[in-house]
Design a protein around this nucleic acid. Sequence first.
DNA 1: AATGAATGAGTTTTCATTCAT
DNA 2: AATGAATGAAAACTCATTCAT
Lengths: 216, 216, 216, 216
Amino acid sequence: MSDSIRPPARQRRKEARPQELTAAALSLFVEKGFAATRLDDIAERAGVSKGTLYLYFESKDALFKAVIQEGIVSALHAGEALFDEYDDPLDLLRTILQGWWDRIGNTELGGIPKLMMSEARNFPDVAAYYQQEVLQRGTALLRKAVMRGIERGVFRQVDADAICSVLIAPLVYRAMWRQSFGPACGQETDTAQYLRTYFDLILNGLLTGVSGGAAR
Amino acid sequence: MSDSIRPPARQRRKEARPQELTAAALSLFVEKGFAATRLDDIAERAGVSKGTLYLYFESKDALFKAVIQEGIVSALHAGEALFDEYDDPLDLLRTILQGWWDRIGNTELGGIPKLMMSEARNFPDVAAYYQQEVLQRGTALLRKAVMRGIERGVFRQVDADAICSVLIAPLVYRAMWRQSFGPACGQETDTAQYLRTYFDLILNGLLTGVSGGAAR
Amino acid sequence: MSDSIRPPARQRRKEARPQELTAAALSLFVEKGFAATRLDDIAERAGVSKGTLYLYFESKDALFKAVIQEGIVSALHAGEALFDEYDDPLDLLRTILQGWWDRIGNTELGGIPKLMMSEARNFPDVAAYYQQEVLQRGTALLRKAVMRGIERGVFRQVDADAICSVLIAPLVYRAMWRQSFGPACGQETDTAQYLRTYFDLILNGLLTGVSGGAAR
Amino acid sequence: MSDSIRPPARQRRKEARPQELTAAALSLFVEKGFAATRLDDIAERAGVSKGTLYLYFESKDALFKAVIQEGIVSALHAGEALFDEYDDPLDLLRTILQGWWDRIGNTELGGIPKLMMSEARNFPDVAAYYQQEVLQRGTALLRKAVMRGIERGVFRQVDADAICSVLIAPLVYRAMWRQSFGPACGQETDTAQYLRTYFDLILNGLLTGVSGGAAR
DNA sequence: AATGAATGAGTTTTCATTCAT
DNA sequence: AATGAATGAAAACTCATTCAT
């Protein structure tokens, strides 16, 4: 509707289209679920006509896959910055987890886990891909931090694979909560307290008896 | 199909029908989501005709609500047995959490959290009810155990409300996982290890320095 | 449900059933139309179960036909008393028309014309039968009175066939009105005035100039 | 939206669609009644697919209301031309009544009264609207002609309100008849005679003794 | 590239009819 | 004779997809 004046405007628009569309689709898929979201609604939210969607995506399924793909790429991109910046295992672990929350769980990207969990069995191939590219990778990253802590005797001897799943669960769960019950309950407020308590619990749970008050 | 000894067969059927139907609906709703589940499929799985569903539920929405209601009732029933059997806060907490897993998370009832999370924003009234009757109640139960532990100096001073949400998260998350990614990945196997690690982490995280090896 | 005490009770019930059913059906067919009336509703109004209807009528169509048949028989029965009781053509005509209103138009039977008109094209055979047995007969009766009046010079020379249709129209139309718009509008009240004006008009219209004030 | 000079073919279609659809619906509703008419049939008669109906009307009920609305608008439009063209009360009255027959009763619009009467109790709000906008208005128009005749001493002293209902009844009844029994009986032919006799009767019935042969 | 009217297959819902009790 | 649970064919309604413009 409002393309005008500067030539770059249209150009930029054209190239940005797919992401505008997947962004609109993501928010609706997360809100209503894949099947309950109508292409009309996505088109409307994106400010285009329904037919336009088919210029960029072959089908509703293809759009879903693009949404997830887009989300994964963004997430990995958001995650890259976290590697190897800290030497101290405690700081590293805390940074990774807090970073996940800040850059994924607490952003629009935080809808992806909810969406993926809801639709996993309807899109097994996408689920497998997600599992591999996101969950595995994320776990591997965490694992390095945990292993380092154990090796240095800062962390207790725990099963490294299992602990990664346990550690991330409260964060992912909270992210999913925000996307489902959150909008109804106004309980967004005590998220800070939730995170503080979370870190207090897991760091005390991980650390060897040496240091008492690990979390703050 | 199964006519036998006493109850008039037809009679028994009539009374058992609603639960047969909600059971069939639950498994399909959990698997595919509400919108993607066809009433035909539910009817087929329950071994009745499509019309029969409307004898017991006036719409697909009403069926959804009945499924949740049924699930909540069952869950509360399953939860009742856990109260006040133990004096030791540690045992009590462990029993509650393990009990949740054994009687809910690890059974068909474990699908309810996934379903409810997926559909919360499509059924805000049901979500509010669920939030109140299940989540609040469950939290209150946990809270009692935590408080007792803190009062006796067995648990560290933590925010009782927040810790409850954090403590239950890994279990609920795991239950939801079983219903989504689980069927594809064969990773059900290490659930025992997951639980062991989970208890090890949280109990070490909760206990005061006094006793070293809380988890086993 | 309520069979008891005296043997005749059940007996009478049994024989009266068909009419109880057609009576219930008539009122609902007239109210909602044939297609929009559910057998459940008819059964409920008649105080029997849906299955019972099929003990007496082969199908919904058969029930419709029975309703009309029943209505026609009653109407003819109601009409029989009107013949040849008066010698004076004016009185005879007035008696016939007023009699039709009192015994048909203004009773439950008055719903038949509305029903028949609504459904004529869905039940051509019934319509033909109705046309022949009711409309033709009624017209023939009226015709005799009109002819007598013309022959005696009391009525003007008019087309006997056409005038019969014209004369009955305001009464039938009013009867149909009562069954459709009537219940909503409270205008039932001025029916007396309607009839008075009707008779005033048609009798003045029919009579030769001889007598001035025919209607009252 | 509106580029270019005259009608871009597609464009014209789009605007004409609603009326094409209501026209198809009207004829089928009149023939079979509302409930017995399938949307498939309407679509087929209009030469569109079933889905197209929902592009223009949000439900079958809404379509019904549009049909009536459309019919009323057309009828009022058809009726406008009749006002105040004649000074002589006799000519005016005759013109109004004959005009109703020619422009409404004897056209497709003549189905509206039958349809409305059949469905009045299923659509009370529509019936009330029809009652007010059509029947009241029409009556008011007639009333003016009657009053003028009475004031000038051309018509006898009659109840103006009641006479209007009585006068119009044979015409409306005949119009409804054409839509119901008519198609079966071939009696369309003597409509001319019916009208002649009708006018002969009512005009003689209305006029003061002065002039003898009012109708022709 | 973009539109949005049109489609028709697919889904929910209704209800006449059947039949075991 | 009577019931009412169960059925399934048919109807209303939805929406992903197509295509003329």
